[in-house]
Design a protein around this nucleic acid. Structure first.
Length: 848
DNA sequence: CCTGTTAATTTTTTT
DNA sequence: AATTAACAGG
């Protein structure tokens, strides 16, 4: 993170020339520096005085620059107290970037500004006043996986059939209700006699009870409860209203009702609310975002100033015109027309492939070509492949590997969401908070330890009767005849947790050491190793590597946490001080912060300087830009998705998504489709996306067949030799048209043999936790005295056939060594006990 | 009560 | 296609 900050600072530092410049020109130079290079609208936005301000910032219009410069302007020219500035973003990444860019402009005073996401900033407030809402200040935060589990739990208690009421659907309705600030009672009232809504209302009610009982809030509660807090507590509201003289909200088009309400409440006194957004980039309505918030801003705030940023500095003219042409088909939008002074640039390349693997190979080959002719030091780092659904990334992987292209996939299941990681986190949470029911339920039988559903149900029943936490029931299980049979195992479990807890409270371990102890002593790793022999698809290596990765993550966290603590002590007035009010260096304190970050800050970070192709959904590409963009899967039914085909509003959202995708490209845009594609378990034929049809021909070149009109599509599909139509018109840049697709179909099957082996998994340079960029696992133990001495053997000293001696199993011979992180899985045939799988460094082994 | 097998269901996008 | 739920056998 520090490195990242530094990079940003250097970058912005050089383009504003802070140092000598300011010294020379003295006074007015400050404002000159902040306005330098801005166009009229931008500079007007930066200098706007007081009162509501709406900045409609088109894609690539220098939005971030305007925001950061405006904040700097407020501080340095208007002498606004930094601590009275609140800047809200949607992602932690955006917040971090804004923070460092502002710091580059104004220096360390930026640290007393509140810059963060809605969730992080509200959490700060909620912790302080938790008691007023009926929580303790240590309430835990539940992510959507936890939410679904609780809904399922509700189903059991209410005996609701999850076939008739899909968990997903009910969960999302509850979430929608909260985002619309509809509480339990109101929801029940409005449900009326609607059968489905009535059931949802029942679940909602019980769901909230369970959360309260657990002293936890889900993601949506953070917004909901914050509104409740402010509305019902005048003193609190007044405090924050007065405190935040200037409020700035980025990506305003993505706010939902609760967020809208919050912004209104907080800005009501000073009315210095500046919102920045682009209605054309509103793509989160499925999450409750209401595009009306930005469209109605002028109505909501009388005498508000509106500034449109329509000058695009990012894309070539061809790309930009294509984007304009697509988005103008939307009806519900503020009229604007982006323009650029950049040259036309290359035409957009449209490629119609036969099927998905041909598409993937085309993309891979084009990337190689791009990289070869690129003058950039890091040719791959400037390339992105975007798609509508995560599922589409699969096809690309093998093609990219074949060409030896370094890549990394973003999104999908996030690191902290992986099963094995969540298991460890659940242990940690239970160790920290023995009353936690959710974590208990998750891990009581993970790994398998002979405690089945029946036993868990009995424990729950006793817990409900006596009011004891489930873990406590386990500890006293010998007192209950109904638990007699499982009592031994229950006691063992509770003692194990108690033992961990003792160690934690004694503060004799580092965070990483505690995690390592959990991973090893609970048998989590052993279970994964044991599964290796059974399951045909061996992902054990990946999963263990993830667990090792968690260790280095913990080390990293630990040191940055300590540093931040130090920082706060030296400057008590920085904003982060409120988060760390009662924090210290002890393990319980560190662990508390760590768990919170794991739920709230679950994004993978991306080093901008890494030279690999980035694969991500369009959603996660918002706010980013790349020299070259490949948009794949541009097919009717995929993009726009078939679920949105019925509703005009949904199509418009998809179109906005298309607009976002197109405008990510700086210089070159490829759009590709497949005539048929294997997806959702079957091969389907697809037409070209209507969004592609909306791009005027003058901005396109076509390869592998034209985008046929609807009428022509049958005919074209009939003569599926993709030779004729497209080929004639192809102007393949740089040479005689190579048979980009159709010819080499042998490859389509060729890669089958290549995959499957362990090497196949590792050779991909892409996946999280495998690439060299992650910090090495080696050094995760540090200063504090280690509680238990390391055992085992360094795997690098071992080879097949070596004899080893195990404390319990006796002497055995090594049959197989599978490297994992900096350790290895050993398959050992013991003379007496048979074949066992063990981690080289962890097992009590000695060389013979 | 666990385990391994079969059947069924699922597929946006994410703070 | 792949993950997850139900089911039967030990």
């Amino acid at each position: 993170m520090d490195l990242f900050d530094q990079l940003i600072m250097n970058e912005s530092g050089s383009d504003t020339g802070s140092g000598e410049f300011a010294a020379k020109e003295e006074k007015s130079s400050v404002s000159e520096r902040l306005l330098d290079g801005l166009n009229r609208q931008q500079s007007q936005a930066v200098q706007h005085q007081d009162g509501p301000l709406l900045i409609l910032a088109g894609a690539g219009s220098g939005k971030t620059r305007v925001i950061t410069h405006r904040i700097a302007w407020l501080v340095q020219v208007k002498h606004v107290r930094p601590s009275s500035i609140l800047a809200i973003t949607f992602t932690n990444k955006a917040a971090a970037e804004m923070k460092s860019r502002i710091e580059a402009l104004v220096g360390h005073v930026s640290s007393s500004m509140w810059i963060g996401t809605f969730h992080s900033m509200l959490l700060r407030i909620l912790r302080r006043y938790a008691e007023r809402l009926g929580y303790t200040s240590h309430f835990t935060i539940l992510d959507s996986d936890d939410q679904q589990r609780i809904v399922k739990q509700c189903y059991k208690e209410l005996s609701i059939d999850d076939k008739k009421f899909p968990v997903r659907m009910v969960h999302s309705r509850i979430s929608t209700a909260k985002n619309a600030l509809t509480g339990v009672e109101q929801f029940a009232r409005e449900a009326g006699s609607d059968f489905v809504q009535e059931k949802v209302a029942q679940v909602y009610k019980l769901y909230q009870q369970i959360l309260k009982q657990n002293n936890s809030m889900d993601f949506d509660d953070i917004l909901f409860e914050a509104v409740r807090l402010l509305e019902n507590n005048e003193d609190v509201l007044a405090d924050y209203q007065n405190r935040f003289n200037y409020i700035l909200v980025d990506e305003y088009q993505d706010t939902n009702h609760a967020q809208y309400k919050l912004v209104h409440l907080l800005s009501a006194v000073h009315k210095n609310l500046c919102v920045v957004g682009d209605d054309d980039q509103s793509i989160y309505s499925f999450r409750g975002a209401n595009i009306q918030n930005i469209l109605d801003f002028e109505k909501d705030f009388k005498n508000c100033t509106v500034i449109k940023l329509e000058q695009n500095y990012r894309s070539t003219n061809n790309v930009l015109q294509a984007a304009n042409a697509v988005i103008k088909n939307n009806r519900g939008r503020k009229s604007k027309q982006l323009r650029t002074e950049l040259p036309d640039g290359d035409l957009i390349t449209f490629y119609r492939s036969g099927d998905h693997s041909e598409e993937a190979r085309f993309v891979a080959r084009e990337i190689v070509r791009c990289a070869e002719k690129s003058t950039h030091e890091q040719p791959y780092g400037q390339i992105a492949i975007l798609y509508r659904l995560n599922a589409l990334s699969r096809n690309l992987e093998s093609a990219l590997r074949e060409q030896g292209i370094p890549y990394r996939i973003f999104g999908g299941t996030r690191f902290y969401d992986r099963k094995e990681i969540r298991d460890v986190l659940a242990y940690l949470r239970l160790i920290l908070i023995p009353e936690d029911r959710l974590s208990f339920a998750r891990i009581i039988n993970t790994p398998r330890r002979g405690i089945g559903d029946a036993t868990v149900a009995a424990v729950d029943a006793i817990s409900a009767q006596t009011g004891m936490a489930p873990l406590e029931v386990c500890a006293k299980s010998d007192r209950y005849p109904e638990l007699a049979r499982a009592s031994g195992r229950l006691l063992l479990f509770s003692e194990m947790i108690a033992d961990f807890r003792k160690k934690m409270l004694a503060d004799s371990l580092t965070l990483a050491e505690l995690i390592e102890a959990v991973e090893n002593d609970t048998g989590l790793i052993q279970e994964i190793i044991d599964q290796q022999e059974k399951s045909s698809v061996s992902d054990s290596v990946d999963r263990i590597e993830n667990l090792k990765e968690l260790l280095s993550d913990a080390v990293e966290f630990n040191s940055s946490y300590i540093e931040q603590l130090k920082n706060v002590r030296e400057n008590p007035d920085i904003a982060a001080a409120e988060d760390l009010e009662n924090a210290d260096e002890t393990l319980p304190s560190v662990l508390t912060s760590y768990l919170e970050r794991a739920t709230l800050y679950a994004e993978m970070d991306d080093d901008k300087d890494q030279d690999y192709v980035r694969l991500m959904t369009i959603h996660s590409a918002k706010g980013l830009e790349f020299d070259t963009v490949f948009l794949i899967g541009a097919e009717e039914g995929l993009f726009p998705g078939y679920r949105s085909l019925e509703s005009e509003a949904a199509i418009e959202e998809e179109r906005r998504l298309a607009y976002v995708a197109i405008t990510r490209a700086r210089q070159k845009l490829y759009i590709s489709t497949a005539r048929s594609r294997l997806i959702f378990g079957q091969t389907q034929a697809f037409r070209v996306s209507q969004f592609v049809m909306e791009i005027p021909a003058e901005y396109l070149e076509e390869i592998g067949g034209s985008r046929e009109s609807r009428a022509a599509s049958h005919e074209a599909y009939a003569n599926h030799s993709n030779q004729p139509a497209g080929r004639a018109r192809v102007q393949f840049p740089g040479g005689p048209a190579p048979a980009a697709g159709g010819r080499s179909s042998t490859n389509g099957f060729g890669n089958y043999t290549g995959s499957g082996s362990a090497t196949g998994n590792n050779s991909g340079s892409g996946r999280f936790g495998q690439s060299g960029q992650m910090s090495p696992v080696a050094s995760y133990t540090n200063s504090k005295p280690t509680a238990d001495k390391k055992q085992g053997i360094d795997p690098s000293t071992l080879k097949r056939g070596d004899k080893v001696k195990h404390q319990k199993f006796g002497v055995g011979r090594i049959e197989q060594i599978t490297p994992v992180a900096n350790d290895a899985i050993l398959v050992i045939e013991f003379e007496k006990q048979g074949i066992k799988r063990l981690m080289a460094k962890m097992a009590p082994l000695t060389k013979v």
